[in-house]
Amino acid sequence: MAKIIVVTSGKGGVGKTTSAAAIATGLALRGKKTVVIDFDVGLRNLDLIMGCERRVVYDLVNVIQGEAGLNQALIRDKRVDNLHILPASQTRDKDALTLEGVEKVLDTLNKDFDFIICDSPAGIERGAQLAMYFADAAIVVTNPEVSSVRDSDRILGLLASKTRRAERGEDPIQEHLLITRYNPSRVDLGDMLNLEDIREILAIDLLGLIPESEAVLRASNQGVPVTHDDDSDAGQAYADTVARLLGEEVPLRFHEYQKKSLLSRMFGGVRR
C-alpha cells in the first residue's frame, strides 16, 4: 500500500514543484519506492526540475485517456533507482483529467510503490482538487508572506472538506506545514512573517523549514533536485523534512539568524 501525499499551496510560485521533486528524491534516496506525479496539466514543469524533459513520450493525460499504458508513461529517474516520474501533458488542459481516471492510475501505482507524491497545480479549482482528492497526507507549502499564509489556510479548509477521506468520513488527511524561502535575517528586520506567527495562524504540525537559498534556483535550472546538493542548506533542510516525514525526530535548523563569525567567513561553512 502506497501513501499518497499531495504537495499543495493554493498560491503559485511558492515552491510546490521544487518541494515535490526534492521530497520525492529524498524518499527514494532513503530506499522508498517513490513516484512523483505532475498534476499541473498545461503547465508541465516537474520534468524540468527533475531533469527528464528530454525523455517524456507519454504523459498522465495519455494514460487516463487510454492512449498509453502506465508503464510507457512512467520515467525512471537517472540518478536514483527507486524514483519514477509521471509527467503532465503540456498541450492539454486540466479538464482532460477525470476523477475516475486519476483513481485508476493511483490504484495501479498503489501496488508497486511506497509513496505517491502528487504535485498540485496552483489555485483551488478542479486541477488542485483532483490532485488532493485521494491523498492520505498533504504537505502545504507556504512562504513567510501574508498572502501565501491566507491561501494555505484556504487550502487547509478544502483538504478538510473536499477530499475522499473527508467525504467518506474516514480519518482526516494528515496536514503538514512546509515553510519555504525562509530568510531569518529578513524575518528579524520585519520584512517576513516569522515562523511562530505562521504556525499560530495555520495551527498544523510543522514538517520542515527550507531557508531561502541560491542552491534552489541553481538546482531548478540544472534539473537536479536540490536534495542531491547535500552541501547546501536547502538540500540539508529537505533531507531533514524527509526524515520527519518518515517519523524521525529531527531538530529544526536554519530558522535563526546567525551572524557569521570571522572564522566561518574565512573558511566558509554551510554553502548557501
Binding site: 491566507r150 489556510d153 484556504r154 479548509g157 495562524i201
Partner: peptide, 26 residues
C-alpha cells in the same frame, strides 16, 4: 478547531461557540 479562510460556520438559531481561531477570510 480552526475556522479557515473561505469557510463559514453558522448557528442559525442560537449562540455559536468556536473553540479555536477564526482566521482571516473566514
Amino acid at each position: 478547531g480552526t475556522v479557515r479562510s473561505g469557510q463559514q460556520v453558522t448557528a442559525p438559531e442560537g449562540d455559536l461557540v468556536v473553540v479555536g481561531a477564526v482566521n482571516a477570510g473566514a
